[in-house]
Write a protein that binds this DNA or RNA. Structure first.
Length: 313
DNA sequence: TACCAGGTAACGT
DNA sequence: ACGTTACATGGT
């Protein structure tokens, strides 16, 4: 196969390694492989007949280099959709300079914004994957959420092998719309989560719910109202999807337990912050709530790895 | 055993 | 429109 590749430019601030650090936060991740300075992922462009295995690297922090390891786009439209997917995944279109200035200026996020310089809000461009990930993650710790995602993916997703490794794609709605509820519960999803995932799958399969349609509403609050109509999707899940899939910079899952823990740690509180405290804290980052949340989430992970490093010494 | 985890629905007032 | 409560399930 000819060496098919393309580049996607990105403006500063951008540090590919920082993004990879975020992406390796869980050894249980099953939808991509981070190998040193590159990521490998199986992707299917919307409407494409076959999936493509892509390798993404970034030698100079100025442009992502994307190489097709398997499969090739069958048309310009297909190539363009793959490019959009990757721009979306790494939030390449965003001008991060205003965020960097804003965050660095304050006492709470200043140190974080400097140590995480160039970290982009890693997205989940596929709406079905984003919703299922959020639903799986409701009220459970992250490790267990990853296990649920892995079981769903291994049971219902497509796989491709290369050089002795297996790469998987999150299941399509069609695969889960008809899934047996008992079978989903056997994966340790609760009844509520199983039902919510089946409902989302059915809606998407019937074309009654799509990322394009949500974005076409032109208003993230309207998109949220659509999402919340589905039983099993509440405000947290809706904001999570606004943040990581719809790319709403103002998404703000204010009830999130991890966010509470992160704010508690950053402010040195002996208790979790109240909603009022969160509101007034985030008022300082108006317009960038999603990035503030993302950086705070990641600060928790850095705290944990720092603690582990100390134990291992 | 109790409590928590990147919540939600149902039901009170 | 709000505040409370029941619920579900693995991890620590």
């Amino acid at each position: 196969m000819p060496d098919l590749s393309f580049e996607l430019p990105v403006s500063q601030p951008f540090r590919f390694q920082r993004c990879l650090e975020y992406m390796t936060r869980s050894p249980l991740e099953c939808l991509y492989e981070v190998d040193g300075d590159k990521v490998i992922r199986l992707i299917r462009a919307e409407g494409a007949a076959e999936s493509a295995l892509l390798e993404i690297s970034c030698p100079d922090d100025r442009a992502l280099r994307v190489r097709f390891l398997q499969g090739a786009p069958q048309s310009d439209a297909e190539l363009s959709r793959i490019q959009s997917y990757i721009r979306d995944w790494f939030d390449l279109e965003r001008d991060l300079a205003p965020w960097q200035r804003l965050a660095e200026a304050g006492p709470v996020l200043g140190p974080l914004a400097r140590s995480m310089y160039g970290l982009r809000l890693i997205g989940i461009p596929d709406l079905f994957e984003a919703l299922c990930w959020a639903i799986a993650g409701q009220q459970v710790n992250l490790a267990f959420a990853y296990k649920l995602k892995r079981r769903l993916t291994e049971a219902y997703g497509e796989a491709a092998d290369r050089e002795g490794r297996t790469y998987r794609r999150f299941p399509d709605p069609a695969a889960l719309a008809g899934a047996d509820p008992g079978e989903l519960q056997a994966l340790q999803l609760t009844k509520t989560k199983a039902a919510a995932i089946r409902e989302v799958a059915a809606l998407m399969q019937r074309g009654e719910l799509s990322r394009a349609a949500l974005l076409a509403l032109g208003d993230f609050d309207a998109a949220e109202r659509e999402l919340v109509r589905v039983r099993g999707i509440g405000p947290w899940t809706a904001h999570y999807v606004r943040m990581r899939c719809l790319r709403d910079p103002r998404a703000f899952p204010i009830g999130d337990a991890g966010l509470h823990n992160a704010v508690k740690a950053q402010l040195g509180l002996d208790r979790k912050p109240t909603p009022q405290e969160l509101q007034s804290l985030f008022a300082g980052w108006a317009g960038w709530e999603a990035y503030a949340t993302f950086y705070l989430w990641h600060s928790l992970y850095e705290l944990k790895t720092a603690a582990l490093g100390k134990d291992n010494r």
